[in-house]
Design a protein around this nucleic acid. Structure first.
Length: 655
RNA sequence: GCCGAAGUGGCGGAAUGGUAGACGCGGCAGUCUCAAAAACUGUUGAGGGGCAACCCUCGUGUCGGUUCGAGUCCGACCUUCGGCACCA
């Protein structure tokens, strides 16, 4: 974990070559870059796009003539085939299979030393962007076919074995990594794409931008862009290279050397080799009687009666695969399984699956962008291609909730900073905790955990409880209060309905609190009819039900309504009843608020203007100034733009 | 380094280009109480003026811009968080 040690026992983490199982997710790379059927946040789409990392470039062959080596070429992938004449060295990954054969005896010791060092490094050290470039010369050469030059071969750990072909052409003038490498080992730096206005001077860093070709034989003078297609055509014609596409995405390694996980259903037969477990024998279940020993291997290996089996093909002696599957396997299709909980001996029921899938709205953290969410898309596409599902994407709409962090850090078991809500659930109830988490901020932002204000939620829920359970008695019935109460109710229904759609639970709850405050006053004054009171409380509870499901149900049933509140229709709002009768007209002078007038709702511009100019404060502000312009926003705002009359001096006689 | 998100009172946060600070926490004052807790009521951005009702100035990370009007739009920058990180 980061420091190269095991997080549990602090022993060194080592790299070993293992034979393991992969899923060919790369086959779906292009389709996974396509998001047209789904409504997902841009940042997730960007993360997946970057993760897949599609690059266009060329596959170029370099000539090889080395005694004792059969291969007559090594291929590289480059996004900059235009710089082919700038190649001054050649670099292979230390793990490249041709390295031992291409190492000359006088360099052997140094090369082997370097490879050992590279293997000891953690992935983190090796891929840190600011790490110094290091490498060693193998003593051998490739031929750059375009100009026939002999180019020295190095190995360097900045070249990754699993990307492209595991070998690159070194163009120090036009790639910063190659530049650093060349500086360190005094390799020539040859400019082939000259910056516009270049004076022939040496570079202080790689020139990666455009320009025109120099030192490139018959191609001199072309623009970089023209060169890119010209050189590809040339290479293709000569049979030395072709346009190609490469992905950063690697195949999905599903093997785990752990006990907990679904066993990979494969059998190794002495005669038949690798044989899949037939469908009728699936699933392969984990054995119970295993021992956990610190061997670095799966405990399944030592469970004789489980490991030893017979070959499904020839019936001979065979051993089971002891690797288990990555847990992301299960999370990649559990939502399909959820459609058919009743199915006991098959994964899902076709009709149920087609009824429910794809998921309309899926919520989860953005941290799943390049793992769970990508794997699930891949799974569905693969299942579609073998005819098991009929849709292309698992989740039509995605909404990312934020992460509640602890003092700026993600909570994690290994850091020991996990806050569990149990204490709060015990003292204040699950509903209060739930409502608090919904209230603290926008759902998609998350935030730092603190318990400031959780008591406020509990207090509010208590008020709702008292309100609902109160014996309402009409005392001073008031037509205005009645109307106001209904207006707030309809406004609240509108607000909560809209906020629910937008996942804005914090403002939805704020609206419910305001409604509660209005009802508290009505209860105390006894100002509305009993029918109105009953309706208001009923709707309040229904609107509260998604946020505080337990309490809402309890109150619902206590008030004599039929179980369950969670099966009720969401209330509808009436536009007319929700409309304000009066509006606050803001009067601005030159954009600054100078007055607020309470006026009837349907007021027009003329009336608003008249009211504004009748106001003493406005009059004083406009006095002695000429009106340049007026902006009127119906029922909301009147902005009067004025200019000081030049002729009118102020009290001090200044102009 | 690259990509993305976010910067607003003492705190969490609210605000289709149109009243900045809804709602809640905390604080202050009060009611109740022998007292405290709980509950309830009022008040609460900063600074200034007025006996007062009120009024004025400043204020949404920084600096510019667009606009009658900017927390909101545009440009540059700073900070924090998240993701990726030698991908040829």
């Amino acid at each position: 974990m980061g420091d190269g040690l095991c997080w549990r026992c602090d022993s060194m983490v080592e790299k070993k070559q293992l034979e393991q199982w992969f899923f060919k997710i790369t086959r779906y790379a292009d389709e996974l870059l396509e998001f047209k059927d789904i409504d997902w946040p841009e940042r997730i789409r960007i993360m997946q796009t970057n993760w897949i990392g599609k690059s266009y470039g060329a596959d170029i062959s370099f000539g090889l003539e080395h005694p004792g080596v059969q291969e007559k070429e090594i291929r590289v992938f480059t996004t900059r085939p235009d710089t082919i004449f700038g190649v001054t060295f050649f670099v292979m990954a230390p793990e490249h299979p041709l390295v031992p054969a291409l190492t000359t005896p006088e360099h052997k010791k140094e090369v082997e030393e370097y490879i050992r060092k590279a293997q000891r490094q953690t992935e983190f050290e090796r891929t840190a962007a600011d790490a110094e470039k290091t490498g060693v010369f193998l003593g051998s050469y490739v031929i750059n076919r375009v100009n026939g030059e002999k180019v020295p071969i190095f190995i360097a750990d900045y070249v990754l074995p699993q990307y492209g072909t595991g070998a690159v052409m070194g163009v120090p003038a036009h790639d910063q990594r190659d530049f650093d490498m060349a500086k360190k080992y005094n390799l020539p730096i040859r400019i082939v794409v000259a910056p516009d206005g270049w004076d022939g001077k040496e570079l202080h860093q790689a020139h990666v931008e455009g320009g025109h070709m120099v030192n490139s034989a018959q191609f001199n003078g072309l623009s970089m862009e023209d060169m890119q297609s010209a050189i590809c055509d040339y290479l293709a014609e000569k049979g030395w290279g072709s346009r190609t596409v490469t992905y950063r995405l690697r195949d999905w390694l599903i093997s785990r050397q752990r006990y907990w996980g679904a066993p990979i259903p494969m059998v190794y037969c002495e005669k038949c080799g690798i044989v899949p477990v037939p469908e009728k024998d699936l699933p392969v279940l984990l054995p119970r009687n295993v021992e956990f020993k610190p061997t670095g291997e799966s405990p399944l290996k030592y469970c004789e009666e489980w490991v030893n089996t017979t070959c499904p093909k020839c019936g001979g002696k065979a051993k089971r695969e002891t690797d288990t599957m990555d847990t992301f396997m299960c999370s990649s299709w559990y939502f399909l399984r959820y459609t058919s909980p009743q199915a006991s001996d098959y994964p899902w029921d076709e009709a149920s699956l087609n009824y429910w899938m794809p998921v309309d709205i899926y919520t989860g953290g953005a941290e799943h962008a390049t793992m769970h969410l990508l794997y699930s898309r891949f799974f569905v596409k693969a299942l579609r291609d073998i005819g098991l599902v009929k849709f292309n994407e698992p989740f039509t709409k995605l909404f990312n909730q934020g992460i509640i962090v602890q003092q700026g850090e993600k909570m994690s078991k290994s850091k020991g900073n996990v806050i569990t809500p149990d204490d709060y659930v015990n003292s204040l109830g699950a509903d209060a905790v739930r409502v608090y988490l919904m209230f603290v901020g926008p759902w998609e932002l998350g935030g730092d955990w603190n318990d400031n204000g959780i008591v406020g939620m509990s207090r509010w829920l208590n008020r709702v409880w008292n309100l609902a359970m109160a014996d309402y008695a009409e005392k001073n019935r008031d037509a205005e209060a009645e109307k106001d109460c209904l207006r707030v109710m309809h406004k609240t229904i509108k607000k909560t309905s809209e906020d629910m759609e937008r996942f804005r639970f914090n403002t939805m709850l704020a609206a419910l609190m305001e409604f509660t405050n209005v009802l508290s006053k009505a209860l105390e004054a006894g100002s509305v009819s009993e029918a109105t009171w009953k309706l208001a409380v009923r709707n309040l509870l229904i609107m509260l039900a998604p946020s505080a499901p337990h309490m809402a149900e309890e109150l619902w049933v206590s008030l004599g309504y039929d179980y369950s509140i969670h099966n009720q229709l969401w209330p509808a709002w009436d536009r007319e009843l929700a409309a304000d009768e009066e509006v606050t007209l803001v009067v601005q002078i030159n954009g600054k608020v100078r007055g607020k007038l309470t006026l009837p709702a349907g007021i027009n511009e003329e009336e608003a203007e008249k009211a504004a100019f009748a106001d003493e404060r406005i009059k004083a502000q406009v006095e002695g100034k000429s009106i340049v312009k007026q902006i009127y926003v119906p029922g909301k705002l009147l902005n009067i733009v004025v200019k000081q009359d030049k002729a009118v001096p102020d009290a001090r006689g200044n102009k």
